[in-house]
Simulated scan of single mutants.
Amino acid sequence: MDIDAFVTAHRPVWDRLDHLVKHRSSLTGTEVDELVELYQRVSTHLSIVRSSSSDPMLVGRLSALVARARSAVTGAHAPAWRELVRFFTVSFPVVAYRARWWWLASSLAFVAVSWVIGAWVAANPDVQASIASPEQITQLVEEDFADYYSEHPAASFAGRVWTNNAWLAVQTIGYAVVLGVPIPYVLYVNAENVAVSAGLMASRDKLDIFFGLILPHGLLELTAVFLAAAVGMRLGWTVIDPGPRRRVEVLAEQGRAVMSVALGLVVVLFLSGLIEAFVTPSGLPTWARVGIGVLAEVAFLAYVIVFGRRAVARNETGDLERAPDVAPSA
């Protein structure tokens, strides 16, 4: 297709639609009908341009014009509460569910690496000596590890933990822009940190204290981090293997959908931070604290499976832009 000829032929229609959109508050009945008709025509033009041209300026201009026209044509939007309900029942869980195999692989890899490093540290005094002196290890095992969770006021501690973890999750997802290549390294660094602490605690027969303090909040917290890694790597893989659709279209759709996970994980990590601040250092028996962490983990996984599977059955993608302005074209 000669794109210059196409633009020349249809520019008057685009300009007329732009004029009607700008003056939509004072349109006559005939002009409103014209606005609707032109909106449909220009939507088709946008479809043709997207499939036949690589000019980002033209695509951007028509996309913006059609979006403004759609707003003028459709008028009122759904109430905010409906959008919020849709987000938590469709957008977030469906993206998490579609990334379930990446999510599972990230989780298993993290646990395997942590176990290997932790066992290595626990069984080798020379390795322990290279990490810290015997006195420092004793201080960590006997006091510092447990004191970390109670040395600050619970409310401020929860806020700090939430901020740090949410930033880590968003940053991990953001690595998708470089095909997700750094994400395995991020997981490895976190696995190493957890494993070294576990190994040092195990070397002094304090592994029960370690798990008693880690599991209440760590199950949900690490699950959220694994999910962030999964969707980030899945998005990066989309660039490499977009399937039968155009790479740009798939990447745009999946990129918008992944934003749902980034926003949803802010809420999940907020709950994890509350558990870490108020449950982990509490005077509850260890079984009760761990039980709360397990219940939170099971509830989150059940939520993703139930709502995610239901949304997949309805062919939902989690794309924040649910009704893109694309009309069939030949």
Rank of each mutant, 00 (worst) to 15 (best):
S63A: 15
M1Q: 11
V194Y: 10
A224L: 02
G212V: 05
A277T: 04
W101F: 09
W14S: 09
V261N: 00
R16V: 00
R309N: 13
L271I: 15
L187W: 05
F226R: 01
V121Y: 05
P56T: 09
F226P: 02
Q254N: 12
F211C: 04
G180P: 06
V113E: 03
S197N: 06
V90Y: 01
T238P: 00
A96N: 01
A78K: 07
T8M: 06
S107G: 10
W162T: 09
A78T: 09
G283A: 06
L271H: 04
E34A: 03
H152V: 09
Y175S: 00
N190M: 10
L35H: 03
Y148T: 04
E192S: 12
S114W: 03
L213W: 12
D55G: 04
D205R: 13
A96V: 03
W237S: 04
L215P: 03
R247S: 14
Y188R: 05
L187M: 12
V59D: 10
F145I: 06
V268L: 09
T44F: 08
G273F: 10
S63Y: 07
G318E: 01
F307W: 12
L213F: 15
A78Y: 10
R247W: 05
M259L: 15
S51P: 00
V36E: 13
W120T: 12
R98M: 11
H19V: 01
L263F: 14
V7M: 08
T44R: 15
T74A: 11
L84N: 01
S107H: 05
V268I: 15
A76L: 08
V290I: 15
L251S: 12
S272F: 04
L271G: 15
P244R: 12
W162Q: 03
